[in-house]
Design a binder for these strands. Structure first.
Lengths: 201, 201
DNA sequence: CCACATCTGTAGCGAGCACTACAGATCGAT
DNA sequence: ATCGATCTGTAGTGCTCGCTACAGATGTGG
């Protein structure tokens, strides 16, 4: 039995293009016509490879998360909790205003509120945002065990705070905030982190 | 010449219902069928009164902004910049988790990224968010003149920071963050505000 | 009471949506 | 060379979308 005609496009390259469309227009705002045009394929190829529009989003999110995890590994590798926070915020400011990508972050731009037919899309995005917050929290738990964070510091609270600021920068970036504006926000946020992280029990 | 048959519904009450639908499903996720059902009117009444789906959104945003301005007046009336910041953040935490409303904030849930046919919706929302930021900045400029904020404090930077945190809390609220979680974020953020606001030139 | 203006409900319009049937093309296995 | 399997491009499918034509209802001014 034969193995069939081989796929004529690179799935990862196509996913990168789809990612950009979802990023710029949101899940519901992105049409199959726009997606297929950006991916340089026709609808049947899309559906054979990814099953549905939502399947394509998940595949794009998987790819996005891959890159993000590699990036987070670098951030979490900083020697101190304070430097983790600084890298996290500053690199967020830069990434969200990188002219190579649409402004903001796919996990926020993708869609916070959706129609009844796409109700699980916001959940999917939220789960991936929470993953980043969990990574930060785990890192801060370790920092506390290492006496790098004070006894009064709450790893979950600090991680949630950083996550909130990062999401807030997303919103600002999507409405045209400059890189300098986001860096300023990051710098101010860092003050709170420093204050909060030295707290005693 | 007669004045015609009078309108059989209350426009403001209908706008409150429309607001909730946009808030929960976003602009693109909200359908005319859902809107008319919530407003207890039929499509021709909607279009006679508001012109289009986008016209309805703007009317709903105007009404939202009215309430928000009344609320901001109370916030900005606090005696010191620090108390302004505290009220702003804490009341945001409460408002975004008020069970009487959908979670988050309409100005963020409404849609950060939209399809090509609704490209100006994100602008409309961003403009209203910026208005709040401007109000904060103006208040902090006054606080600086009153020697309530240090010479080194930057009113624009502080206002942008608070605005970013508020938007970040929106994102967290929309994915199910509790009121306590948001208050914790607000409390941590306030530390940064205090640090930054006493800065000398 | 009548003419006119505006609203209301029914019913449905064209357009665009996500998605797919189908036929031809291209592979591996025999 | 031929077959089965899988991909590709064309050309649609049915459905839902935002929106509206129309006729009847309900008000005011003369």
């Amino acid at each position: 039995m034969g193995m069939g005609r081989p796929r004529a496009f690179d799935a990862d390259a196509a996913l990168d293009q789809a990612m950009e469309v979802f990023w710029r227009h949101g899940y519901e705002g992105a049409t199959i016509a726009q997606l297929t045009e950006a991916m340089h394929i026709n609808p049947p190829s899309l559906y054979a490879a990814f099953g549905s529009k939502e399947g394509l989003l998940k595949a794009a999110l998987d790819r996005y998360t891959e890159k993000r995890d590699a990036w987070m590994e670098k951030v979490l590798g900083a020697p101190t909790a304070r430097e983790v926070a600084e890298r996290f915020l500053m690199e967020h400011a830069d990434a969200q205003t990188d002219p190579a990508n649409p402004p903001g972050c796919l996990l926020v731009q993708g869609g916070l509120a959706c129609g009844t037919g796409s109700a699980n899309v916001p959940f999917e995005l939220a789960a991936r945002r929470n993953h980043t917050e969990d990574q930060l929290r785990d890192r801060f738990v370790r920092a506390k065990a290492d006496r790098d964070l004070g006894d009064g510091a709450d790893p979950a609270s600090l991680a949630r705070y950083l996550s909130a600021v990062a999401s807030g920068m997303c919103v600002m970036a999507s409405s045209g905030a400059t890189r300098e504006a986001l860096r300023e926000i990051a710098a101010v946020s860092l003050k709170a982190f420093e204050e909060q992280s030295k707290g005693d029990a």
